[in-house]
Every structure is written in structure tokens, then in C-alpha cells.
């Protein structure tokens, strides 16, 4: 008597009897030579190995699985580069690339909303205003989040969206426009700068709850900035003066964007007659 036979026999449980003996030939789905089978539709599997290896080599990034998102996220970081190519120590956002991107987002039916993430120190007035104008004229819902900083020309971009958030610790510097060019006639230069400043003031007051008087007061306040006149608004301050809608981060911004997308969908639905 072997060791196993010494145990009590339970029919169907012990000893175990497989329903069919193991080995090839019993599985009806088994195909001996699938490559040579005639009249079988073949599916081609294309790997992403090469491009993901390239991505690791070039950017130190790995390929992530593609998930279709109904929103797109645009980040505006560093200096907003405009008419002049800045020296390489600057981190820049190139407006000539961003503007067609925004056009594509507006046109693409798969994109339902745009999230703008800002951490900028300002930059070219015209390029910044161009981005702000194109964001404000989009028909799709847009939400901005100021993380870190949204200074100078970052302010009109932040307020250009349908709803603006600022992180609790993020700051926004509001200060007058400074001259970078040549001064030939002082009154003319002053007039010109004043006009440039008016463009920014007009845009910000038209797209946020701040009044022109309040914005100009913040712009020309003395004693807050070491090298300039102006004001630094941190988180809640920006909300209190009406510039930004709410203090919040990613969670609030995405929830708000989702709400705006839903609102737009219900608005666009044609009522049944």
C-alpha cells in the first residue's frame, strides 16, 4: 500500500481525476501550425518598442499607455517668448507654437475643454496678449490654474479663461510696464508706454471682476517690491481683489472644467419639439 492509498478515499475529490488526460490533442481550440493555416484572417501586432526606447534615451521619459482624454492641458512656463528669441538660460513658452495649438483644440471635436496651467514670469506684451485673446475667444470651456507664479503678462492669460484658480501659495506680481527700447522723445515714449499699459489694464478689467481703479492702484503701489513699484498678490489676495475666481488646485480646476463641459452640452442640446 502506497502512502496516498492510506488516506480515506472520497469519490470525485480524492484522489483527483482530471476530466481529460493532460497533453496535446484534446483541446478543440488548439492549432498545431497557425502560420500556415489558409483563409485565416491575421491580426498584425505592432510594438512600440523602438519609439519608447527613443523617448527614454532623449527625454528620460517612458511611454505611458494612451488614454483618450476629452480635455487638453497647456502649460505656460518661464518667459513668454515673442518677437525676440531669448538667450538659452531662459525657459520659454513659444507663442507661435501655442496659437495654432489653441486653434487645433478649438476645432477638434474630440476636445471638449482646455486646462491652462501657468507658472510664468511674464514676457513679451504682444505675445502674452495674443495668447490671452485667443484663449478668451475660444468657444470651448477653459479653466486656468496659477501654480507657483503668474506674473506680469501672466495675469491677462490667467484671467482670459472662463474660470481661474490660484494655488494657495502661488503669487502674481502686478507692476507697470518698463521700457526696454531706445528713448528719443520722452513725452512720446511715455505716451507709448501708457498705451501699451492700457492694453493690459483693459484686457484684465474686461475679463475679471477687478475694477480699473483697483488694478491701477495695485500696479503703482510703492514699498512692496524691492526694485520696482507694484504689488505681489499671494493666493487668497488675488481672489479678494477680484482678479481670480477661486483658490484651488488640480482637483477643483478639473471639477470646474467638467461642470463647464456639462453645462455647454446641455446648452447646445436642441429641445425636442
Amino acid at each position: 500500500m502506497t502512502f496516498y492509498e492510506s488516506f480515506e478515499q472520497v469519490p470525485g475529490i480524492f484522489p483527483y481525476q482530471p476530466p481529460s488526460p493532460p497533453g496535446p490533442g484534446n483541446d478543440p481550440d488548439r492549432r498545431e501550425n497557425p502560420d500556415n493555416e489558409p483563409n485565416k484572417e491575421r491580426t498584425k501586432v505592432v510594438g512600440k518598442t523602438k519609439s519608447s526606447m527613443e523617448a527614454v534615451k532623449e527625454m528620460g521619459a517612458t511611454q505611458i499607455p494612451e488614454v483618450k482624454s476629452n480635455i487638453h492641458c497647456l502649460t505656460i512656463v518661464g518667459q513668454i517668448e515673442g518677437h525676440l528669441v531669448l538667450p538659452p538660460q531662459n525657459k520659454t513658452t513659444k507663442y507661435e507654437h501655442m496659437i495654432p495649438q489653441l486653434v487645433a483644440l478649438e476645432q477638434n471635436p474630440e476636445v471638449e475643454g482646455v486646462l491652462i496651467v501657468l507658472n510664468t514670469v511674464g514676457g513679451d506684451v504682444e505675445a502674452g496678449l495674443a495668447i490671452a485673446e485667443i484663449i478668451s475667444s475660444m468657444s470651448k470651456p477653459t479653466v486656468s490654474v496659477v501654480l507657483g507664479g503668474g506674473h506680469s503678462i501672466g495675469v491677462p492669460i490667467a484671467v482670459a479663461t472662463d474660470y481661474a484658480f490660484i494655488a494657495e501659495t502661488a503669487s502674481m506680481t502686478i507692476h507697470p510696464i518698463r521700457l526696454t527700447g531706445l528713448v528719443i522723445g520722452v513725452p512720446q515714449t511715455y505716451e507709448y508706454l501708457d498705451k501699451m499699459q492700457d492694453r493690459v489694464v483693459r484686457f484684465v478689467t474686461a475679463h475679471s471682476a477687478i475694477t480699473e481703479e483697483k488694478f491701477r492702484e495695485l500696479m503703482f503701489r510703492t514699498g512692496e517690491l524691492a526694485r520696482d513699484i507694484g504689488t505681489v498678490l499671494i493666493g487668497q489676495d488675488a481672489v479678494e481683489c477680484g482678479l481670480i475666481n477661486e483658490v484651488g488646485g488640480m482637483q477643483q480646476a478639473l471639477a470646474r472644467l467638467k461642470n463647464l463641459i456639462e453645462e455647454r452640452k446641455t446648452r447646445n442640446e436642441v429641445p425636442l419639439q
Partner: peptide, 20 residues
């Protein structure tokens, strides 16, 4: 062209002449 930034212009434009 007008740069509207709280950063020092000397810092932003440093190396402009050496740019190849």
C-alpha cells in the same frame, strides 16, 4: 518689443550678444 516681467532685464537678456 516690450518685455513685461518682474525679472531683471539684465538677467533675462544676458548672453544675447554671444548667441550663435
Amino acid at each position: 518689443m516690450i518685455l513685461y516681467t518682474p525679472m531683471q532685464l539684465e538677467l533675462v537678456l544676458a548672453g544675447l550678444e554671444q548667441m550663435t
